[in-house]
Amino acid sequence: MSLRRRATQDLPAAFIIAALLALLWLGLAEGEGWWFGGPAILAVVLMTLHLSPVRAQPLHPLGLLRFVAYFISQSLYGGLDVAGRALHPRLPLLIEKRQIAVQLPDGPARTVLVGTISLLPGTLAVDLEDDLLTVHGIAGDPMANIRRLEKRVADLFGLPDAGMRI
């Protein structure tokens, strides 16, 4: 692979990481020490691309907004739901385990999907083997929740929503 192609591929990711790191530095150093922070960010970006290469993935602004709103409301609901079940004297748990085929492409979209499942009401990601995702549920209709979540994630990355097979 030529250096040039590599650079054009890595450049967007480098900018995003640098921007986020600048925010982190602002938070840590409270706006001081940019003479050190600036070069440090540059060095960290280069080291990150060397150690743990990532590719930038364009986000859809509206999708991002909807995803964040969905995530926050569902997180709250999920927390309340599981807290209620834990404190309920009879411990109501509707345990089921299912496998579903993930339609989202490999990469960040799948990471977000698997990472989010366990925070939303009643679902827990258990395994991901190739395209087959194993989900453990304790409440409600986990399949419907995951289908909705997959659509939100597809929106987030501006991907066509392919639907999901069970």
């Binding site: 986020l20 982190l24 840590l28 440090a40 960290v44 990150t48 960040p108 698997v114 990472g115 991901l128």
Partner: peptide
């Protein structure tokens, strides 16, 4: 699965926090 994503996220944060 997922471990590389965690590393990709945590690497820059820990490196910069270390330098901080």
């Amino acid at each position: 699965p997922m471990l590389p994503s965690l590393l990709a996220m945590i690497t820059p944060v820990l490196l910069l926090t270390g330098l901080y």
